[in-house]
Design a protein around this nucleic acid. Structure first.
Lengths: 244, 244
DNA sequence: TCAAAAGTGTTGGTCATACACCCATGC
DNA sequence: GCATGGGTGTATGACCAACACTTTTGA
């Protein structure tokens, strides 16, 4: 905040901005990182795909707006959405990022388990999951936002426990490992991954009493739930990151 | 961006927001982490101290506004400021964070070497460095922003090379170690710290041909300059972080 | 000659990697 | 039985923390 500039009191003395949120909603399906995109139904960028998002309501924080938009775009209930992982990515404020007017957008990243196909609600012409590595050119500066979001997600898996956000409430360690391998694009050693996860207090806890589940054929795997921990100390580094 | 909502074209259909930047400018002086604060000269929060900041100009990005404000508040030349480390922290958008109107603020963090006292320019009643651990209650939500910024800086030292941003162009390894010890509030083993830094390619490079400098008494230390690397692989973890 | 700070060497423990190997299930 | 995925054991090696020791300056 500017320190007590008189013009602070006069709404006409500063440029009015529109403030929006944009959402990079990721999920892991079929061993690929997917992102939720909506098809624009009007100019500008009509027919292009874009990240979902929308304007802040008059008395709404950016976080609340992001959660509201996430519920609208995914068709999930507010209760379900309130439990999903959603965090601010960064704010994009280049003067010409929207050809219509001055729009400052607070981008957010959401990690969700594999959900049913979105119903494409709201004002979008369509909505679907896209392979995050194979999106065409997106509207506005959304290519950049998406790239930033992918980088952030990859980095966050190293030193936080939020890989579990990609998993359903009960999951196997194999599924959790799949998340890492998919996001990072590498293969991990299963025994070592297992030890690392179980040795980190609060990363996962056994889903006690739950039966075992099969991933097709093979031995049924024990089920786990996400733990209380958020940080991962020491971190779980990407194999490439080790030598650099 | 909302996908082609008609009201996107009509400036009267959405709430006008003011957009500002706030700056958490850190430096290390006298073995304490310091933050630059300005004294507010008018209501609200007259007489309180606050983070420096100000409104975005009509065709200015948040990053450009932050750099401009940083130059104004520190009294440094634009050239000097352009070389300093400045990065976005996060955006604060609670509806009532400013009692006057709806203000969305894009907070930034800057790391600077020990600079001369600020001249308190601009619209502030005063400006000075404060021990970052002993700031009184600040104006607006700036206590929260400052706390977030301190956390971020501490975390960033673990996995990036930007501790050098706190140092002058030529510095000794002892000075670099002081930065870590000050920000983290711990003591580090000098031989191990030294090895770790020198073993990380691109963290520092010798200031070739430069003479040696003394930090008072004791053996003169070799001088180094910041290297090209930004990431720190593997990270340099805080001692506390090891067991958790 | 002593204190203080820079710089080098060494060692022991811990942790990760890379495997080998057993278990349980579907076909 | 055999393929497939879950789960356990283990040894080699890398790395890190701790600390002893030498070097170079100012007083």
């Amino acid at each position: 905040m500017s320190a007590a500039a008189p013009e602070g009191y006069d709404p006409s003395a500063f440029e009015p901005f529109a403030v929006t949120v944009d959402l990079a909603v990721f999920t892991v399906r079929e061993s690929r990182l997917h992102v939720l995109l909506v098809e624009r139904g009007a100019e500008p960028y009509q027919g292009h795909w874009a990240l979902p998002g929308g304007f802040l309501l008059p008395r709404e924080s950016a976080g609340a707006a992001a959660r509201r938009e996430l519920a609208e775009e995914t068709g999930l209930s507010d209760d379900t959405v309130s439990g999903l992982h959603l965090e601010q990515l960064r704010t994009y404020s280049e003067p010409d990022r929207d050809p219509r007017m001055r729009v400052v957008s607070v981008a957010h990243t959401a990690l969700v388990p594999d959900l049913p196909e979105p119903r494409g609600g709201g004002d979008a012409a369509g909505a679907r999951w896209w392979d995050a590595a194979r999106t065409g050119p997106l509207a506005f500066d959304h290519d950049r936002i998406l790239a930033d979001a992918r980088d952030r997600v990859g980095a966050k898996l190293e030193y936080t426990c939020l890989a579990t956000a990609f998993c359903p409430p009960h999951f196997t360690l194999g599924e959790l490992q799949q998340v890492y391998e998919t996001v990072w694009g590498v293969e991990l050693d299963r025994p070592n991954f297992r030890r690392k996860v179980l040795a980190t207090p609060g990363f996962v806890r056994p889903a006690e009493g739950a039966p075992r589940r099969t991933g097709g054929r093979g031995k049924p795997a024990a089920l786990y739930r996400a733990g209380d921990a958020t940080a991962l100390h020491p971190p779980l580094l990407r194999p490439e990151g080790r030598q650099a």
